[in-house]
Simulated assay, not measured.
Amino acid sequence: MHKEFNEMKTDVDQGRTPTSTVRELLRWFGARRRRTGIVKKIQSELDDAGIITSPDFTKVWIDAEITFKKAHTVAAATTPAGEHPSDSKATEAPREASFLISMLEAANRGVISVQPQDSVEKAITLMLAHDFSQLAVMTNERTLKGTISWKTIGKRLSHENNLKEAKDAMEAAFALEDSEPLFKATKQIIDHEFVFVRSSVDQKVTGIVTATDLSEQFQSLSEPFLLIGQIENQVRKMLHEKFSVSELQEACSDADPSRREKIQSVADLTFGEYLRLFQKPEKWDKLDLSVDRGVFCDEMNSVREIRNDVMHFDPDGIEDEHYDQLRRFSRLLDELDSLGQ
């Protein structure tokens, strides 16, 4: 564990409320993303130290600031008779990072706004300067009066309205709290083209999420699944009709005989079982591949580990080097396929 975590604990014990970012907290534990295992480890360390983060480090943007505070003591009366408060931890579901709209960078970037009485020219200039399609119309950081956009300006001009102030081209704005689940918010974003995001703590408008932001987020979440699916298809093609059913069944763990019986084709194998086939010299020789078996299996094992992380659908996505690993291995399989034709 990083010494900074211990320094933070000392600060809290002495009555201070130190701050950090989620990314920095992860770094203290040698991690860069909120994987299930690392979230569980961090939460366990925080629980043992009697510390909480505000807001919850699993429910905010990875670069959001969090404050470390002393947790409130749970009264013994709130637990069943004869049970120690700490005993109840064993029955809690494992903590995982949530998919909330607050996880998006756009929801935390702040907003560029104009006052209702500001000129339309000012709004247009700001949209051009920042390459925005819309602006918030606000009287202060919490009071959202509406929105002005190229679309609302065009509508008003088409009716030959005399536009002078931002309020003359303003329409109602739609806002969601940052605690809104991302997938539930998706329909609202699509319907309205964009939504403003409010802090559930102090009601400040913290950002605006557009349909473009949403598509970029889903691309980052879905691309690893597509790459892994492509790799699995390439592996199945490589193994097709090379082994008998009994040989395929040998890739299954001896500890699970019922699983072995279910394997009747290459498509029934797991990714780990594919790897187990490649690792056996006698099976490798049957594939007649002109590459080093050890290097190939190391690369494939790295893909297997990435695959396990991706299947947890981490809201922080995967690292760039993991994307590179998936693409690189897929290219290798393509090249081996072309050489074999």
Rank of each mutant, 00 (worst) to 15 (best):
M8C: 03
K9L: 11
T19Y: 13
V22F: 13
G30H: 11
A31I: 08
R32N: 09
E45Y: 15
D47R: 06
P55K: 02
P55T: 03
T58F: 14
F68Q: 00
H72C: 07
H72K: 04
T73L: 15
V74T: 06
A81G: 05
G82L: 06
G82Y: 10
E83L: 14
D87Y: 09
T91K: 07
E96Y: 15
S98W: 15
S102T: 06
Q115M: 06
Q115A: 07
D118F: 13
D118G: 12
D118W: 10
S133F: 15
Q134A: 14
L135C: 10
E141I: 06
E141H: 12
R142N: 07
S149N: 08
K151L: 12
G154W: 08
L157I: 06
H159L: 12
N162G: 11
A169S: 05
F174R: 00
E180P: 07
T186N: 10
I190R: 08
I190Y: 15
E193L: 14
S200A: 13
T206K: 14
T206S: 12
I208D: 06
V209G: 06
T210Y: 14
L214W: 12
Q219F: 15
F225D: 01
L226K: 10
L226I: 12
I228P: 11
Q234R: 08
Q234G: 05
K237T: 09
M238S: 03
L239W: 03
F243N: 00
C252V: 09
E261K: 11
Q264I: 03
S265A: 03
A267G: 01
D268A: 05
F271E: 00
L275K: 00
R276V: 02
R276N: 08
Q279N: 04
P281K: 03
E282A: 10
D288T: 12
S290D: 06
V291S: 01
G294S: 05
C297L: 02
E299H: 01
R304Y: 07
N308A: 13
I318Q: 01
D324H: 13
F329Q: 01
L332M: 07
L333S: 02
D334C: 08
S338G: 04
G340E: 09
